[in-house]
Structures are given as C-alpha cells and as structure tokens.
C-alpha cells in the first residue's frame, strides 16, 4: 500500500512501488487525463507536477511519489480556470488533444518558475511532442497565459 497525495486529496493505492506513476494515476485512481505516449520520457504526454515541478510520470516510479504533492491536469483548476487552460481555449490550441494535458502541465510549471518566459525560454522548456503540430498556437497561448497571470 502506497499513500499518495493527488490533487490535494489523500489516496492509498495497492501497487508495486516500481509501477510508473502514470499507470497508477490512470488505472488505480481513474485520472485518465494524463496520457501514455512513449513510456521512455521522450514525448511529455504524461507530464504531471510533483511538488510543483514538471515530471514525466511514465518514468517516475510511484514509490518515489510517496508523501509528495502530485497535481494532474484534473487538479490544475476547477472549471478550466487556470491561466494556461484559459489561454488554451482562447487560442483554440488543441487539435486531436492527446498531447495537450502534458503540454498544459509542462507550460504551467514553466510559468510558475518564469512568469514572463521569452521565446528562447519556451523553446528550451517545452520539449513535448505534438504530432498534430499545434506548436505555433502553443507558443502564442503561452504568451497569452503569461499576460493573464500578471
């Protein structure tokens, strides 16, 4: 049994501590907003926050998440009110949408650290893959979100 704190709530899960956090979130806790894309920390579809920092949960054993604060896309806000979500809707960013939970979590972590990122900051920090190619709107929406947060 592993005790977790996910989206501000305590949860106890019966999983092998080696199990990637991704699959515990999706299957044990039913939080399917976090996606599987590669399983090797190469695409970012599974990005969540652990103690506020962006983590690729496919490569993060649930055992290490014990006693740490985990936030998933479902816990980012109520009613899509986080500045990044608002910007994503305003700019109509998603296409298929599959990568977008991970994108939004990666961007939220970036903005928490750098409220006014430059394009170079964005290039360096947002390395998630979007196969639909929504990058141009992502860049724009990041700047919009940075404006909302002021």
């Amino acid at each position: 049994m592993i005790k977790l704190n996910v989206n501000g709530r305590a949860a106890t899960v019966d999983a092998d501590p080696d199990t990637p956090l991704l699959w515990v979130l999706r299957e044990h806790l039913g939080l399917t907003g976090t996606k599987y894309g590669c399983g090797i920390a190469a695409c970012g579809a599974c990005t969540v926050h652990v103690d506020g920092g962006a983590v690729r949960s496919c490569s993060f054993p649930v055992g290490e998440a014990k006693d740490r604060k985990i936030t998933t896309i479902e816990g980012l806000s109520h009613n899509r009110s986080h500045p990044v979500q608002k910007a994503w809707i305003a700019e109509q960013v998603p296409q298929c949408g599959y990568c977008q939970s991970g994108m939004i979590m990666a961007v939220a972590a970036l903005l928490a650290e750098k409220p006014r990122p430059t394009d170079a900051d964005i290039d360096a920090a947002i390395t998630n893959i979007c196969r639909c190619g929504t990058y141009q709107r992502i860049r724009k929406a990041i700047h919009v979100a940075a404006g909302f947060s002021q």
């Binding site: 399917t32 998603p94 977008q100 939970s101």
Partner: peptide
C-alpha cells in the same frame, strides 16, 4: 476543445 484542456476528453 474544453474537454481537451481539462483532461476529461475521452480517447
């Protein structure tokens, strides 16, 4: 789009 920014979209 709304469901694709809050994780509720069902794939």
């Amino acid at each position: 789009i709304p469901a694709k920014v809050d994780g509720s979209a069902e794939f």
